[in-house]
Amino acid sequence: MLSIKNLSITFTNEFAVEAVHDVSLNIAPGERLGLVGESGSGKTMLALAISGLYPRSTTRISGEVLFNGTDILKCSSKELCRLRGKEIGMVFQEPMTSLNPLMKVGRQIEETLKMHTNTPPTRRRELALEAMESVELPDPKLTYEKYPHQLSGGQRQRAMIASAIIADPKLLIADEATTALDVTSQSQIIDLLARINERHGVAILFISHDLSVIRRLCNRVAVMHAGKIVEDSSTQAVFENPKDDYTKRLIAAIPTRDKRRRQT
């Protein structure tokens, strides 16, 4: 359903960073693909290219991003807007900056429905409350009325997830969507994503530094380093038999409870 071919993204500003270098990647319908890698390796830029939200004015982009046959890089902003709401749901890495500070959380969650469907207001509200319930936000009716700054970090992440899944997208891109969540809330989100993946066949691109979450949720993992995909294989192969040097270092650095760094 998604096929990225030879994608490169270079910043044209004074820093001339090549954020993504010749990346090719496919996602099949219903697949759960994990994307891991070095901080600064281009994961977020790749996600932004898929949703057409990469910074156009400061980057040069080449290659193709085919979503069900349509090249996203050639879409008009109107087409993109429709795609993003209905077909592609996106959870951004820093929720505080992608949520509108002046708009109630509940309103923002139902925004996609308002923009892209004819769902009447009362039904939209019901669906928003349901979505908030499903991401385990406390007291949905109360939280609906709150503003983003009145939520905790993890609550904001869950609000973002609710707004990304409310319109039943075909592809869900989650960029560090569970970073601030404790193990219990994390498990709930993993279960939720696994459920919507199984029930509705939603494909998931899950970007995370948390390798234990990736391991539990994803059936395939791609590893990025310095703008390139250095490994792309089944979850089991990547964790148990990593081929690339960087992947090996990454797997070896997963914090464990074997040894304390701190000697007291």
Binding site: V36, G37, E38, S39, Q93, G153, E176, T179, A180, H209, L211, R249, L250, A253, I254, P255, R261, R262
Partner: peptide
């Protein structure tokens, strides 16, 4: 949550730095 947005290799470097 000072290291939650870092890959585990850099995370390890930062934890050592803090200590």
């Amino acid at each position: 949550e000072p290291v939650s947005s870092l890959d585990v290799t850099i995370q390890s470097q930062i934890l050592d730095l803090l200590m």
